[in-house]
Simulated assay, not measured.
Amino acid sequence: MKHIFYYLILILTLSSCNEINDDVKDLKKHVSLKIEPKSTQFKIEKIGDGRLGPSDYTLIAEIEFEKKDLEQLKKQVKTKSNHSFYAGFKKESLDFLSPEIFEIFDYDKTSEKYKINVTTYEAQYFYANPLINGFCIFPKKGNRIFLYLFTT
C-alpha cells in the first residue's frame, strides 16, 4: 500500500513526462539532494502504459554543483558500481545533456544505443521513493554529475 501511495505521488507531480526540466525545486521532489545544486537539467521518462501493472519511471539528470560542493559530494558517494553493463540509452533520452556529460557515452552501432564508458558509482545518496535504484557518474571535466535513477 505504501508503494502505491508513492507511485501516486510521482504520477501527480509529473506534469508531463519526457520534457526537459531545469527547476532545482522540481528535481528535489524526486531526488534526495543534501547539497544545493547550482543548476540542473533533467527528464523523467515513463516506461509502460500502466494497463498490465504499474508503469515504471526513470530519471535522467545532469546536475551542476559548486566545485567545493562537488568535492564534498564525491566523498559521500564513493562506492563504485558495476553499471557499465547497462544496456544503454536511446539518443532521445540523452539529447539534452551538455557535451561534457555526453562524452561519457560511446555509441554502439549493434544495439543503436549509447553505452557508458566510464566508472559508475552507487547512487543511494540520491534515492527518494519510488526512485530507489540507479547510479551516478562524475565526469572528468566540469562540476557536473550524471544521475540515472529508476523505480525497479
Rank of each mutant, 00 (worst) to 15 (best):
E112W: 00
I116E: 00
I145S: 06
Q41T: 08
M1K: 14
Q76C: 12
Y7R: 11
A128S: 14
V24H: 04
L149N: 04
Y148C: 05
S55L: 06
I35D: 00
K115N: 12
Q124T: 12
I44H: 04
Y121S: 07
K141T: 14
K75M: 12
L33W: 08
I116F: 00
E92S: 15
K34Y: 11
Y148M: 07
T151W: 00
L27Y: 01
T13V: 10
V24A: 08
A87Q: 12
V31N: 00
I60Q: 06
Y114P: 03
Q124V: 06
K91V: 10
T110Y: 02
L131T: 09
T79N: 13
K74I: 04
D56K: 08
T152R: 11
A61H: 07
E64P: 02
I4S: 14
F42I: 00
K68C: 09
S16F: 08
N129L: 03
E71C: 01
N143A: 09
Y107F: 15
E36F: 05
E66V: 07
N143E: 13
K38W: 02
I60K: 02
L73P: 08
T58K: 13
I47C: 03
N133R: 10
L149M: 02
Y57N: 08
K29L: 15
I35S: 01
I35H: 02
D23H: 01
M1T: 12
G142P: 04
H30A: 03
Q76D: 11
L70P: 09
S111Y: 06
T110W: 00
K68V: 12
E19Y: 07
I116K: 00
D108E: 15
T152Y: 08
D106E: 14
G88A: 14
F102R: 14
I60W: 01
T151M: 00
D23N: 15
Y148Q: 06
Y114D: 12
T119F: 04
T13A: 05
Y114C: 11
G134E: 00
F105E: 12
V31I: 01
K90T: 13
K2G: 07
N129Q: 08
T110A: 10
T119Q: 10
S32H: 08
S98L: 12
S16I: 09
K78L: 05
N21H: 08
Y57R: 10
T120P: 04
N18K: 13
I101E: 05
P99L: 02
Y121I: 06
F150A: 06
K75L: 05
E112P: 00
K115Q: 13
I132E: 11
I104V: 13
F105R: 13
K43H: 03
K68M: 11
E122V: 08
I4Y: 13
C136H: 05
I145D: 07
L8R: 09
S111Q: 02
K25F: 09
I104M: 03
K78E: 06
K68N: 15
Q72Y: 09
K140R: 12
S39E: 13
F85I: 14
S93K: 15
F150C: 10
K74L: 07
L33M: 14
P54W: 09
Q124Y: 12
A123H: 03
G48V: 05
P37L: 10
Q72C: 05
I9W: 07
F42G: 01
I4H: 14
L52F: 11
F138Q: 00
I9M: 15
A123I: 07
F42P: 00
K113I: 02
K90H: 13
Y148P: 06
